[in-house]
Write a protein that binds this DNA or RNA. Sequence first.
DNA 1: CAACAGGTGAACACTCATGTTCACAACGGT
DNA 2: ACCGTTGTGAACATGAGTGTTCACCTGTTG
Lengths: 179, 179
Amino acid sequence: MSVHLLQTATSVLLKDPTASLGDVARAAGVGRTTLHKRFPTRTALVRAVASDALDLIESVACHVDFDSDDALEDLMTRLVALGPRVEFLLRFPGLDRDEELAARIREMDRPVLDLITRLQGTKLRRDLPAWWILHTLYAGLFNAWEAISDGRLAPLDAPRFVLSTVFEGVSDVRAVDRT
Amino acid sequence: MSVHLLQTATSVLLKDPTASLGDVARAAGVGRTTLHKRFPTRTALVRAVASDALDLIESVACHVDFDSDDALEDLMTRLVALGPRVEFLLRFPGLDRDEELAARIREMDRPVLDLITRLQGTKLRRDLPAWWILHTLYAGLFNAWEAISDGRLAPLDAPRFVLSTVFEGVSDVRAVDRT
DNA sequence: CAACAGGTGAACACTCATGTTCACAACGGT
DNA sequence: ACCGTTGTGAACATGAGTGTTCACCTGTTG
């Protein structure tokens, strides 16, 4: 039941970052008092939601074989499926001001950055910084989540769209004539 | 001076969407009363900032030759240069709930969507929806703006990074072996 | 049955953003 | 010198979100 509460809080706060605790409690079907019992302050709730999202990412990242050549595709596919729970992490305003959370995020980025750097020896472009590629991947994820929540993109289509677009770009290869 | 006020408001509200009007006024070096004189309510200020951003986009869009084959690259390059003023438009929470603004945005998207559809006959992939390509371009812009404001990316490098990444992807073409 | 933990609504005080009014100062035009 | 404009600070009322406490209800466990 605590899990469902966090999920509801995630979606409510993501749709409207200024939503009151009363809104969150009502959406979750619990009393505001109960919400305050579990999360004494608003920032505590936000941190719990963010922390939950980080746990979620870790729980899928540990299933990815980072030594594989398809690790990035595998990771991305799994992340796309997580949806709003993780979108919250990248989108919620002022979240980066929490140093502890920011540190945890950097900590999670590190192995992915290493993976990207390694893959730049084989399948990834070497003329782009690893951090730029990482953020391009994030941008692709973000893009897909937004399209899904807008109802324009079917969740099952999302991984294919993201991977295909981010890796191969939007140019028609057969028509490419630039250097 | 009114212009400078809007610019300041943009950056302050972008950094912290929950910033109070007092914060905005102080950052702009004017009294809160003066701010209220010019923009009676908070939403009025937000709408003014957004409207200003839209004007900015229109002012550069009218210099783009939409019949050219390089129209997209031209447009993107100009948009990258606009920076935070426009980032506000895509990022500020709850902005899409203003129907008038949303309509103006859709109105501006239309010619770009048409351009994309047209270019899908030549240089752009036909297996992706036009709206997906459009949002991928936006995601690239957003990515660049974020990197710039974080100090990781030099503004002059931004257009090249965005265009190259969005159009050609992050895969090393020479190593591509997928279908 | 008794005790206890967990959930609930009502009420309260507190803080803060907001919107408004008012009186005053600076400035330019007549 | 007069007046209208514009900006300013101070003060005030209002409303909303927040955090807290308390009395009450419910189910479980002993």
